[in-house]
């Protein structure tokens, strides 16, 4: 238990350090732009696939459930709202944790075990501001943008699936989206995206930077990144839903 708490303290310290080093992004802006473009291009196809299929799966399930009640006309709104509030962010973030997080972790870990980070230190540069800070912000910002994009795409996926299976035409579907996907749902979806993005960026950079011991260490770091990101995402999802609900209930929101 003490061991776990110490690990948590290390994580928080690392996260805080990355956060306050934001100004250093300006001096390393070339590296940052390169990483940003790299991460974004590499994970766009994953996000689109995950988004379309998440929306489609949820639409099929909601269709099966609502069919018995003759409430198919509200399917579009209910499916969009349910997907962007809850299941969409989690599933797309799982995919991104595998794609972006694991890759960045493996890259940093390989640099560490092949002593490239030590080499940079020997040149008198700070490896954290040179390697870690640009990667953290590139991964975090990209994940936020990709998550929001994936959620938008998931509406399309749901629309197509319902069109295929249930003969509900897209006009009717989109009409309901406006009625049910309220500003509150969108606020919840975006706040989830922001938190998940920061969490993924932190976890992959920390595990990559702390890699120890040869090639097997890199494999271990990748596994740790994937597992920790998933657990962190599920726990964060629970707390964000809770907190946003309290905020919404406590007053006139928006």
């Amino acid at each position: 238990m003490i061991h776990r708490l110490e690990a948590l303290r290390e994580h928080l310290r690392f996260f805080w350090m990355l956060f306050i080093r934001l100004p250093e992004l300006f001096t390393e802006r070339r590296e940052f732009m390169r990483q940003f473009a790299d991460v974004g291009v590499r994970s766009l196809s994953t996000t689109v696939t995950a988004g379309i299929f998440t929306g489609a799966i949820m639409a099929l399930q909601f269709h099966l459930q609502l069919k018995d009640f003759g409430a198919e006309s509200v399917l579009g709104g209910l499916n969009t709202s349910g997907t962007i509030r809850e299941v969409g962010p989690i599933l797309i973030a799982f995919m991104l944790a595998g794609k972006v997080g694991a890759f960045t972790s493996a890259e940093l870990g390989t640099m560490k075990v092949t002593d490239q980070i030590q080499a940079v230190r020997c040149l008198g540069l700070d490896p954290i501001s040179f390697f870690v800070v640009p990667r953290f912000w590139a991964v975090a910002l990209n994940s936020i943008l990709l998550l929001v994009f994936g959620l938008v795409i998931s509406v399309l996926g749901g629309m197509i699936a319902v069109w295929m299976v249930a003969d509900i035409n897209p006009d009717q579907y989109l009409l309901m989206v406006e009625r049910f996907a309220t500003s509150e749902s969108i606020f919840l979806a975006v706040s989830k995206s922001v938190i998940f993005g920061l969490l993924m960026g932190h976890i992959c950079c920390a595990n990559g930077y702390w890699t120890e011991g040869g090639t097997q260490g890199v494999g271990l770091a990748v596994k740790k990144t994937a597992v920790q990101s998933m657990v962190a995402i599920v726990l964060a999802d629970f707390f964000i839903s809770w907190i946003v609900e309290i905020i919404v209930r406590s007053g006139d929101f928006l």
Partner: peptide
Amino acid sequence: AEGVGHATTDAVVGTSITVIVMDF
């Protein structure tokens, strides 16, 4: 060493995508 890292990442992504598609 890079091959190992790439293989691991690709495996996780490829499997996750396949699982989602099979689920659909």
